[in-house]
Nucleic acid binder design. Structure first.
Length: 523
RNA sequence: GGCCUUAUCGUCUAACGGUUAGGACGGAGCCCUCUCAAGGCUCAAAUACGGGUUCGAUCCCCGUUAAGGCUACCA
């Protein structure tokens, strides 16, 4: 029985080993034949972040800007900022300035763009209207676009009908029936007109996307998009394609919400005879309920996070990991480290929920990594904003507060919020802690402790500790029986740095004063 | 409704046909300890479902379901 059993094991083992070696063989053949992408010479990389100035910078926008920035820096390319302000109805005064300011804060410096300039400017689309009109005209002349004179009421009605008949809502091309003379008449009469893209019938529009690989659309699904509006401004689609071409943008890295309109853009490139850029459509940032990240469900503006005291390092690190990872288990990255490790190939496909708890953790991590002098500056700013603004604290004092609280804060403001006792005598005493740590004998015990402290001259931490030990011994108490009430007396709370650290920072005089005061006030 | 996209712990994600499905945040517990943190250790927690292909599917294909995006003279 035993031999038969062992034989069976042996047989199956042999088979397994055989398949495994076969597998390994093919794998090695495959790997050796695979080309390294680095060896392929690449055209100069130029990318752009192209927000519309409708208010603040959205965190999703920050992520898009960041990926563009990282990709540019990684490949020694150019990072362009372009303002897409072709919708005059949505323009917000000061938004451009705000956008630039926020990008600067985040450390995403652009190479070409408004204010800074560049050889391919202007970088604000409203200053390029003539260019778009010229290209629209070119399409018109080539028969790739056509005039339409429909009013928005007419279009609404058309769409309503289509919905009722349950057919896809798209322009029915009624303007294509107009004769050249009719068109001339209407134009001459000054009837408002738009220029629409003439989408070919029954063809397939295909493009490759780094994130999503090949994507196909049937041209029958594509609407005859308006390219030039009746106010003479281009729509996003025209302006975007024209500018990307003129500005020699090599990679279009943008949010997934643009995926559906990409075939229109591809068509435009084809009509103009222009080389297609490489597309990379980024997964969307999501609310906790998985819908597209929106203002209704929390903060969405970068400046909101900035105001709440989030470090740019943390926000950048966090947002970088929403849709990308380095492939190993590192998680703490500086901007430079991200540049070094970033690749579009490692960008994921599925949307990512913006989860604030991890951002908080990252903030604590980045804050603790900062050198003392940087934290000192932040602490001073926090103090300016606090009720203690009127007081003056020596740098040396603040530095010792920092070293004692470093591991206990997530935000700079926590220094003030979590340990106000370093900046003023306890205003009140935590009732819970009083109940737990304070009893009828405590005042007398603390008084003898004060007796010990009074004897100290220029005490160090160890001196406080020794003094407390002596007091505890003479009172026949455990050290902790003194430590807890003392912390309460001196800080008003039950949590914080080591007691002797607190005493040392406060100084002997202040310590004694606080103990005496607490004895009178706690009952 | 139509088109497109997506689908691994609650969340961010790893594993690009062979793993006890790994890590992180958050949660629970233990250790450390004067408290609170930090740190260390441990635990719970996932391949949406159904079919194929394959010796073998988280991974490839098809379908279902679900979620999201787009469907403007907005971007």
């Amino acid at each position: 029985m035993a031999p038969a059993f062992s034989f069976r094991i042996e047989a199956s083992t042999i088979i397994t080993v055989e398949f495994l070696s076969l597998f390994l063989y093919f794998r090695s053949v495959l790997l050796s034949s695979r080309q390294h992408p680095d060896q392929v010479p690449r055209l100069s990389v130029r990318v752009r972040f192209a927000p519309s100035p409708t208010g603040y910078l959205h965190v999703g926008g920050l992520r898009t800007a960041l990926y563009n920035y990282l990709f540019a820096r990684k490949n020694n390319g150019a990072f362009i900022l372009r303002i897409e302000d072709t919708d005059r109805t949505r323009y917000v005064e000061g938004a451009v300035q705000n956008l630039i300011e926020t990008l600067n804060w985040a450390g995403l410096e652009y190479d070409e763009g408004p204010v800074k300039g560049g050889t391919k400017g202007p970088y604000v689309q409203s200053e390029r209207i003539a260019i778009y009109q010229q290209y629209a005209k070119e399409l018109l002349d080539a028969g790739k676009a056509y005039y339409a004179f429909d009013t928005s009421e007419e279009l609404d009605e058309m769409r309503k009908m289509q919905e009722k008949m349950r057919v896809p809502t798209k322009y029915d091309r009624r303007a294509l029936k107009l004769s050249p003379s009719e068109i001339q008449e209407k134009l001459a009469a000054g009837i408002p007109s738009v220029i629409r893209l003439k989408v070919p019938d029954a063809t397939t529009v295909v493009f490759d996307d780094i994130v999503r690989s090949r994507v196909e659309f049937s041209s029958d699904q594509i609407d005859d998009q308006v390219l030039l509006k009746s106010d003479g401004y281009p729509t996003y689609h025209l302006a975007n394609v024209v500018d990307d071409h003129l500005m020699k943008v090599s990679h279009v890295i943008r949010g997934e919400e643009w995926l559906s309109s990409t075939p229109k853009h591809v068509l435009l490139y084809q009509y103009f005879g222009w080389k297609l850029p490489v597309f990379a459509h980024l997964p969307l940032l999501l609310n906790p309920d998985k819908s597209k990240l929106s203002k209704r469900q929390g903060d969405v503006a970068v400046e909101d996070y900035r105001q709440k005291g989030y470090l740019k390092e943390a926000l950048i690190n966090f947002v970088a990991f929403l849709g990308w990872n380095p492939g190993d288990e590192r998680e703490l990255f500086s901007l430079d480290e991200l540049v070094n490790d970033f690749s579009l190939e490692r960008v994921g496909k599925s949307g990512a929920v913006f989860n604030i708890e991890k951002l908080d953790w990252l903030n604590a991590q980045h804050l603790r990594k900062k050198p003392d002098d940087e934290i000192l500056v932040m602490l001073k700013e926090e103090l300016q904003r606090s009720p203690f603004a009127v007081k003056q604290f020596a740098d040396e004092y603040l530095l010792s507060v920092i070293s004692s609280m470093r591991e206990r804060v997530s935000f700079a403001k926590d220094f003030v919020v979590n340990s106000p006792y370093f900046f003023e005598s306890p205003v009140q005493f935590d009732a819970e802690v009083v109940k737990k740590r304070w009893n009828i004998e405590t005042p007398e015990q603390l008084k003898s402790l004060v007796g010990e402290f009074t004897l100290l001259k220029n005490p160090q931490k160890e001196d406080y500790e020794a003094a407390l030990h002596r007091a505890a011994e003479s009172l026949n108490l455990k050290n902790s029986d003194l430590i807890h009430p003392l912390r309460l007396a001196v800080s008003g709370m039950g949590a914080g740095p080591g007691l002797y650290d607190i005493l040392y920072i406060l100084g002997n005089e202040e310590t004694i004063r606080r103990i005496t005061s607490a004895i009178e006030r706690i009952h």
